[in-house]
């Protein structure tokens, strides 16, 4: 994905914020609708969360992208190790790009460090497709690190698909935490 495309998509994200229906691709429209349907009709856990102060969930998710800090570790002091994605998406949000720029800056300062970017998906997709999706997400993060000056031979990608969730819940918030790419030191 080219930088200009990333920036363009991010621009759209900023403009429309929560209104994902207006987001960049038709794909997001669809998947968001499906997740929403699930929240209202089939997921008890989500219903509970809905009944809870709506603010609480809003503070943790924007659209269906996780924006909280629970489960987030550090690549280095002050440098978050992961970024989050919308359902079926590989587009980097503003917050994700900020995190990745911090990672890139730290990696430029520590030029002997190599990393593995692990790509993950939530449990709401078929296993094989999710392996491909995880790889796509990890590469979106890798590409961004590269645009900020980290050479590609220092970054390996590894897709886990949906095999290594960080949150074992079956609700939209848990799924949002699991749709992630995590930058891990490899040496």
């Amino acid at each position: 994905m080219s930088l200009s495309k990333i920036l363009k998509n991010a621009f759209l994200v900023i403009i429309f914020g929560l209104i994902i229906t207006a987001c960049a691709t038709k794909k997001s429209v669809k998947t968001t609708t499906e997740t929403t349907t699930e929240t209202s009709t089939t997921t008890k856990a989500a219903d509970t969360q809905k009944a809870d102060p709506i603010k609480k969930l809003d503070a943790l998710m924007q659209g269906d992208v996780y924006i909280g800090s629970d489960t987030v570790g550090e690549l280095a002091s002050g440098v978050p190790d992961r970024v989050f994605f919308a359902t079926n998406e590989t587009i980097l949000t503003t917050a994700s790009r900020e995190t990745l720029r911090k990672q890139a800056a730290w990696l430029r300062q520590n030029s002997d460090v190599t990393v593995v970017v692990e790509g993950h998906a939530d449990e709401r997709g078929t296993r094989e497709y999710n392996l491909a999706l995880g790889e796509r997400r990890a590469n979106a993060a890798k590409d961004y690190l590269m645009t900020y000056g980290v050479s590609s031979d220092r970054i390996k990608v590894l897709s886990y698909g949906k095999e290594r969730p960080v949150d074992s819940g079956s609700n939209p918030l848990s799924w949002s935490k699991n749709r992630r790419s995590v930058t891990v030191k490899a040496n």
């Binding site: 491909a132 796509r136 590469n139 979106a140």
Partner: peptide
């Protein structure tokens, strides 16, 4: 040069089809 996954045999057992994921494309 990347992750290979989703394998299956051909009906004669002589080939394997699968996906190769590389640079964000499978």
């Amino acid at each position: 040069p990347g992750m290979t996954f989703a394998p299956r045999f051909s009906p004669d057992g002589k080939k394997i089809i699968m996906s190769l994921a590389k640079d964000g494309n499978s």
